[in-house]
Amino acid sequence: MGKFLLRRATSSLIVLSMSVVLVFMSIRILPGDPVLAKLGAATEVTPAALKALREEAGLNRPLLVQLFSWINRALNGDLGVSYFSQFPVTRLVAERIPVTLELTFFIILIAVVFSLILAPLSTLKPGSIVDRVIGYFTSLGLSIPGFVIGIIFILIFSLQLQWLPSRGYVPLSQSVGDNLRLMILPSITGGLTATPYLVRYLRASMLEIKQSPFVRTAEGKGLSNWRILFRHILPNSLVPTLTMLGLIVGYTLSGVVVIEYMFGLPGIGSLAIESSFKRDYVVIQGVALTIISFFILTTFLFDVLCGLVDPRLRLTKEQKSEV
């Protein structure tokens, strides 16, 4: 287990550091001087004052030095200061991340519940009408942009039925009921976007396990189809699905950007969009770093979880071929 952990941690760290460098480089390559952006278009500055400011910001040092000092500061929790509001980026992100995490949690919850219902239903009798209908809906779900699902829900539940609000946010600490009411539509929208991926994957791995000898034994023993499905096939197909779930959690974290924006939720996604309109790159950079770290951390945790549940997954390819 120790070796497996070490190997997974190393590869996660490599991917993390490479994406950190990519984020840093992409912001530097793009046109737009951060110092000018900080001053704003209206202020008139002399070239000498500009040069002094650039030196103060450390922009005249070699790129590699800048990169390392930036990483060093980031590791110490300093992601820079917003050009626009002058607040520390860490503070802006910390203020808004609870909203994003809450939304992500609900989205995953909904996606998992739906998948655990739909995938077994469609594997019960492959090729049946139920299976085909679920198949059509998964294909459709993979092709509808998330925000279109959101628009449909707003049309039905906010405009026509007037049951649920379409925009806004109330903190959990203020009113739990209001908070949850406002979370319903965004969570279902995100949940339905993530569900098709999970259903497809879970269905495929359930069908694969259905072929294995122990399932035939169970059938031979005369167990009911439902019992075989839920007691034997489903638990065994959950392990491969865990890896997929880890990826989906990661993608949801970055996918909530649009959902937050369209439902007016003040999470880090909306923060990134607002900052992009103001060209406040430091903030976007901070948000990107936060999401990437969460993404890599969740996929790592889910992989470790899989390794805990299924020791076979801890082996490397070479070790596997020896077995």
């Binding site: 950007v257 990134a272 990107a288 999401i291 990437i292 993404f295 890599i296």
Partner: peptide, 12 residues
């Protein structure tokens, strides 16, 4: 691992 939308936000 870089969120697609964020990358697009920054560059565009």
């Amino acid at each position: 691992a870089i969120p697609q939308i964020l990358f697009a936000l920054v560059s565009i």
